[in-house]
Design a protein around this nucleic acid. Sequence first.
DNA 1: GTCTATAATGGGATAGAC
DNA 2: GTCTATCCCATTATAGAC
Lengths: 246, 246
Amino acid sequence: MPEVRKEIATIELPEPVSNPEGKPSKPRTPRIDRRKAPLTKEKILDAAESLFVQRGYYGTSLRDISKAAGVQLALTHYHFGSKEDLFRAVIDRRAEENVASMRDALRKVVNAAGDQVPDPQAVLHAFITPPIEHSLRDGEGWRNYIRLLAQVANLPQEESIVVPVNIHYDSVVQDVIVQLRRSYPHMSATDVHWYFHFFQAAITHVLIESGLVDRQSGGLCKASDLDTIAEKMTQFFAAGFKGMAR
Amino acid sequence: MPEVRKEIATIELPEPVSNPEGKPSKPRTPRIDRRKAPLTKEKILDAAESLFVQRGYYGTSLRDISKAAGVQLALTHYHFGSKEDLFRAVIDRRAEENVASMRDALRKVVNAAGDQVPDPQAVLHAFITPPIEHSLRDGEGWRNYIRLLAQVANLPQEESIVVPVNIHYDSVVQDVIVQLRRSYPHMSATDVHWYFHFFQAAITHVLIESGLVDRQSGGLCKASDLDTIAEKMTQFFAAGFKGMAR
DNA sequence: GTCTATAATGGGATAGAC
DNA sequence: GTCTATCCCATTATAGAC
């Protein structure tokens, strides 16, 4: 059930006509009715996002996707080319905004500290909060996206599709590491990487909301309770860093 | 390249002939040559194990498996029935031994403590060490199995195949939680579950050896270095528990 | 137990009318 | 941009000879 999208807008504005160098004008995409295309593309992306999470890349067929989107099979190829390209499009659609949220959160923490070294717990919080906020409060599509992202992070890198996905997030990770290292100048770079990696590793499981913890805790803990998880995790991992800092 | 297996042995010993109640003897499987069957089954299991890790359940075909095993396609059905049954067989083959290793490691720690409460760091160590030992030192098949297990733990529980897999390990988790709670009597059961879950969540990523950390750390950390990871993780998470215990 | 052959279905992708 | 129809290949699974 894809969420309703209100804004239409023109996706690709044609460049204003100015041809100073007098080059022959390139063949342009014909002036066809593009008003409904964005809706179709979004519907396909929404359906793909949802199904890829549930059954994985290979477990989801383009037929499943087109059916769930209420759209003809051929349109998936028309709009996205191949299945792999569609998968990439699903990832890319929200990647930039997600990274921006994480970067902004980190920047706020750093700015708030002024000349001081930012509180490492706040740094960890800035890393985990944005995806959780998106997942909890920006609609079903965002939740699917975050879960998908976390699943892809848990695939072996030999797997062809995954590498270009995770690269989106490398620079934010670097920024976080830099800030953490300021708090622990006597800790080796390697150890900071390891400890942060444990944090990130736990996050990837938690964001999937696998449901493991629900069963193992007999219902005491709920994987869907991401707000609680964000709080507990930042406290716990901050305590870990602190304990290792001696 | 499946590892060589030396032992043959009889898998199913026919019951000794004693028929006190005089019932008509049941139709028995015909006396056919079973000497090569175990080898074939193992070859299929090895190949399946390896390929499921690399490309996932849906991304791996029975043709791929039979080819990798050097065996006819039809034999996969003869020996295991359906593809799903084969997957289960792959999981089940090593599950018992793996669980036993974990249980033994935990028991040793508890016994060593005698009347005292066992060191929580040793308890965590007992949980993470057995799969890592298997993965590192018991051959390629074991490494594939551990990676596969960790991947399955990172699938949403809606996914049909996963639940019967993870259930194998629930009782060990319960035992570990019981021991940890002894160390932190003032900590709520819920919090112990959460903190241990973070540990387990990190483990599932780490055991996959995704390779994320290699790239993010610029080579400082290697996902394949599970010995280091076991040490660092037990220290770090023990520090986390200790820090939260106030 | 192993093999060949084949059934029956579903998969990604494309052609061409509208 | 959308639709129908179709190509061609891969898939799981089974039948039956050896």
